[in-house]
């Protein structure tokens, strides 16, 4: 599949648009879901995005970071960002309250090809905070279940307290088209009754159900995870052009200028963040 870089809308090249925090929900000890709305109401109508696209979030006075959009695209008028406290900016936004202002540029990047793969089985492999952008993608597929085959979701976290949207598990388990498996790397407090191990330990549960010719895989997680997940997918005989990975890199501009996210002749911000394995197999330093 050839990808084109689309300019999804015409605002927010260098200057962010002002947005207001309208709701904050705590997902885990260190992760919050922020619901945002532009102060200019016209922008809320024009702000459309694909799952897997990202915005550059400005916390005024501290700085700017790329954050994947966590809400489903069909939700109009507002959007959500799930943010884990890891750096300076993300720590500061955790201190903000409802009504506080932030800046938003974007959406940028290409997003996951969900629409483009109607009729296929979809396999989502998520690690940690990578679950949020993938959730945006598979919620879109789940909402249009009839258009897709089976939907596999493999989700791994470091520990039980890091698990996001734990309550949605039951919803997925009730639907026979959705095959949902979850794991944690370790369970020091002995409070986890599911699988323990890294996300690749979930593959044995699904390997007999995968139809490699008709499956498209989408992956999002910490950098270390990709190599191992790709190995599993290759074992399942899923073709490189059907494996999509959302790559993480440092970003400052989001529009292909600052050069921080360069991998070979690609920029993660413009050409990604979602790449097919086929595209990056020849790229040095990609995985």
């Amino acid at each position: 599949m050839t990808k084109t870089i689309a300019k999804y809308n015409d605002f927010g090249d260098c200057t962010p648009q002002t947005a207001k925090i309208v709701d904050i929900r705590s997902l885990t000890d260190n992760t919050k879901l922020f619901e945002l709305q532009f102060t200019d109401s016209q922008l809320n109508e024009r702000f459309t995005y694909k799952p897997g696209q990202f915005v550059l979030l400005s916390v005024f006075g501290v700085g700017e970071v790329p954050i994947s959009i966590a809400s489903s695209p069909h939700k109009k008028g507002l959007f959500q960002l799930g943010i884990r406290m890891v750096g300076n900016v993300t720590t500061k936004i955790h201190q903000l309250k409802k009504g506080d202002l932030v800046g938003i540029r974007g959406p940028y990047g290409n997003g996951f090809p969900v629409e483009e793969n109607k009729g296929k089985d979809l396999l989502f492999v998520a690690g940690g905070i990578g679950y949020l952008p993938l959730r945006s993608a598979f919620r879109e597929a789940v909402a249009k279940k009839a258009d897709f085959g089976k939907i596999f979701i493999l989700y791994g976290d470091r520990c039980p307290t890091d698990v996001l949207f734990a309550e949605e598990k039951d919803e997925y388990k009730q639907q026979k088209e959705i095959i949902f498996h979850q794991t944690v790397d370790r369970d020091d407090d002995r409070c986890w009754d599911g699988n323990i191990g890294v996300v690749t330990t979930l593959f044995p549960f699904i390997k007999d159900e995968i139809d490699p010719a008709n499956t498209v895989a989408m992956i999002c997680g910490p950098p270390i995870m990709y190599k191992f997940v790709v190995m599993e997918l290759e074992k399942l005989k899923i073709k490189p052009e059907n494996i999509y990975l959302s790559l993480e890199r440092k970003m400052q501009c989001g529009v292909g200028k600052c050069c921080h996210c360069g991998i070979g002749d690609k920029f993660v911000c413009l050409d990604g963040p979602v790449f097919s394995l086929e595209e990056i197999q020849g790229l040095l330093e990609a995985l």
Partner: peptide, 10 residues
Amino acid sequence: FALVAGGHNF
């Protein structure tokens, strides 16, 4: 230059 907030340096 290629260090991300999570601590991974590409």
